[in-house]
Amino acid sequence: MGTASNRPSTSVEDYVKVIYDLQERGGAGPVTTSRVAERLSVSNSSVSGMLRKLGELGLVEHQRYGDVRLTSKGNRLALAVLRRHRLIELYLVEALGYSWDEVHDEAEILEHVVSDQFVERIADRLGDPTVDPHGDPIPTRDGEVVARDTRLLSHADAGTVGVIVRVNDSDPELLRYLADQRIAIGMRVEVVERQPFGGPLVIRLGAPGAQRDQPIGLVAADALWIAPGQEAGEQRETHAVRNG
């Protein structure tokens, strides 16, 4: 079991985690210096300097002005950090009553200081869960991630039916907005209409007999991932939204 003292620095762990997340979510294209800088709220020059260090450590492949890619070593490190982060988030929600918009910043701190033994105790206590409160997959102890057929709600055509299985967790205000709108992981969703010229989507939420229609802007729709073709009973509704 590893301890916090024999791990790479906090900065190194944060960088590989962000690069992995940008790679894994896709959507906006290749991982670039500017995208990493935007996510971490630092300058491009700071990112360039750190990428050189990560390259020397064998964690990334990056040519100047080119895309950034994790090596297999960098990928393993990123998955280890993500496992700690996402298990901590889930523990904060399930055991301590945090709401889903509160856990990200807490986990950002704790993931660097807790021991691997502590994290595995959390996993055992929670029954080896596979997803965190935002539906993000939790890597296994062996660094595997269960693949799921998902797509962004913003990319779904009218008539698409599925289940909300994941939400981007980088914006607490957006998470609070979704909670206020009673939009949660595990809900059945149908795309009723796509308004033209970048207008909102009209979605139908809930099981037959208890449905409601409501518009949702593209920014919010671009943060929600659905599993098309599923019904709500097929998705384990582990994480009811706790709104404070």
Rank of each mutant, 00 (worst) to 15 (best):
K17P: 00
V18L: 04
Y20I: 04
D21T: 14
L22I: 05
L22H: 02
E24Q: 11
R25H: 14
R25I: 12
G26Y: 09
A28P: 06
G29E: 11
P30T: 08
V31K: 01
V31A: 10
V31S: 02
V31Q: 07
T32H: 03
T33P: 02
T33R: 06
T33L: 12
S34R: 13
S34M: 04
R35H: 07
R35W: 00
R35T: 02
R35K: 14
V36C: 10
V36S: 03
A37T: 06
E38Q: 14
E38I: 00
R39D: 08
R39I: 00
R39A: 14
R39H: 09
L40F: 01
L40M: 14
L40A: 08
S41T: 12
S41W: 12
S41H: 13
V42T: 11
V42A: 04
V42I: 15
S43W: 07
N44F: 08
S45W: 12
V47Q: 01
S48V: 05
S48R: 10
S48D: 02
G49V: 06
M50F: 03
M50E: 06
L51F: 08
L51H: 04
R52D: 13
K53S: 13
L54W: 03
L54E: 04
G55R: 14
E56K: 14
L57T: 02
G58N: 10
G58W: 11
L59Y: 15
L59R: 03
V60T: 15
E61K: 12
E61W: 09
H62C: 11
H62Q: 15
Q63D: 15
Q63V: 14
R64F: 09
R64H: 11
Y65D: 11
D67H: 10
L70A: 09
L70P: 09
T71F: 07
T71P: 07
K73A: 15
K73F: 09
G74V: 00
G74R: 00
R76I: 05
R76K: 15
R76L: 08
R76S: 10
R76N: 12
L77F: 08
L77R: 00
A78H: 02
A78G: 05
A78F: 09
L79F: 07
L79S: 01
L79M: 10
A80F: 09
A80K: 04
V81T: 08
V81L: 06
L82S: 00
L82Y: 04
L82T: 01
L82Q: 07
R84F: 13
H85I: 00
H85E: 13
H85N: 11
L87F: 09
L87G: 01
E89L: 10
L90Q: 01
V93S: 03
E94M: 08
E94P: 00
E94T: 12
